[in-house]
Design a protein around this nucleic acid. Structure first.
Lengths: 233, 233
DNA sequence: CGTGCACTTGAGGCACGTCAACGTTCGTGG
DNA sequence: CCACGAACGTTGACGTGCCTCAAGTGCACG
């Protein structure tokens, strides 16, 4: 039964800023849960019964059209918040991409606690506003960028966000080489492309010496400047 | 100098739920401003100096790639909130589509007031969460739907949101005929299409007797069921 | 009655999707 | 430890939906 005191995201998640007495109450309400890669946490359309903080791992938020075309509408990393407080239904599914550890709360308990703790709501508001900014930026990518630009942007964003969440380095750094938490299919789902197109773009970038692909799940950014030029916007 | 008491969005905007004394303070901080159609309120990348409530009219939130391709990332209606509290820079431009009336606040004043009034922050949080839901739903449309589906979805959404914001009718109704606050170019920018493609799809829907186009700015939904089928997802 | 802008319509090209075959990695059981 | 099969990824050939470019057409303005 690990307490919040030892939580690795203690100072970055929405819990930051709470006093130790408040934290004690909150930790009574929550419980940790581990997820295997591929394991779902929340299903699209289900009643919104739980919310959570990501402690470790990467998860996807996805939504599908009636005929089964999937689109990943968000990706969350350690210290990010999951779920939909103050509403009845979940607008999207949440699924672990890697092994993950999350701190889960019953939504109703959390709603009540949040309503009584303005500091927490403030943190949550800031986080939600940031997520909205990021989502809107992603909309431009989805509708106005070419496949080449999309893949380049994706690789750069991955390198930045993994560096942030890994957090062994000063903020502002980005990784030169890293393991993708995504399969090719999932990359396609993030970018609104097909698996074949993603594969072709990756191969092209590799052939041009801009990136390296040591194994199927790992990427090395060789010429970041050029990659940024290609990413554009 | 119209006060908040007589404000038409008084009970729907984030101000709802504030006591009359608090409202008095808030109204001291804000001032009403009218905008002509096409007039900008906030520029992308500018320092975030103001936030606002929409009282009347429709405004677009837009973002562009470096080479000038524009994407509309959101559309706001009466009672909606505009701007980015708690952050330095605006991620997107805000421009009036119709004549509009907004209630403007200096961002710093608003930030301070919000931090001291949990009820206001709570309303803002709910609104932001709702906006995030809507934005994510729109992402699926942008990346996974065909031009035909996009236009159909757009027309249905317009009819719903204009009915809501007009608010002379019970909630849940949608308009059968209405005036578009958008030019063809702007519709294209919302849907991530070109003006020609939008025009062609509209013509097709008209030829098939699903919609009517009495004038270039007005739309009549003749066969809503079929339109919903086409919109899909 | 022109002039200009918003919109429509048409012809043609290209980026990406589709379909299909093949290569590679990895887990499983003999 | 190797053999096998399934899942994942790559590559190629081809089709098509939307974009591009280029003329019209109709409506609103002086």
């Amino acid at each position: 039964m690990t307490g919040c005191d030892t939580c690795v995201v203690r100072n970055r998640a929405i819990c930051a800023g709470l006093g130790s007495d408040e934290l004690a109450v909150l930790s009574q309400m929550g419980r940790q849960r581990t997820l295997d890669a591929g394991e779902p946490l929340i299903w699209e359309g289900d009643e919104s019964v739980l919310v959570a903080n990501v402690i470790e791992g990467v998860l996807k938020l996805s939504s599908s059209t009636e005929d089964g075309r999937e689109q990943i509408v968000g990706v969350v990393y350690p210290s990010d918040f999951i779920g939909r407080p103050f509403a009845g239904a979940a607008g999207h599914s949440v699924t672990a991409l890697t092994e993950a550890r999350v701190c889960v709360f019953a939504r109703k308990d959390f709603d009540r606690f949040a309503s009584e703790h303005p500091k927490l709501e403030h943190k949550l508001l800031e986080r939600t506003l940031g997520e909205l900014d990021r989502t809107r930026k992603w909309m431009v990518l989805l509708s106005r960028k070419t496949a080449q630009e999309k893949v380049a942007t994706f690789l750069l964003e991955m390198s930045d966000r993994l560096a942030e969440s890994g957090c062994e380095m000063p903020t502002g750094t980005s990784l030169k080489a890293f393991d993708l938490p995504f399969s090719r299919q999932q990359i396609a789902d993030v970018l609104g492309l097909t698996i074949e197109t993603v594969s072709r773009q990756m191969t092209t970038l590799k052939r041009d010496g801009i990136i390296g692909l040591p194994t199927r799940r790992s990427v090395e950014i060789i010429d970041r400047t050029t990659l940024e030029d290609i990413a554009g916007g």
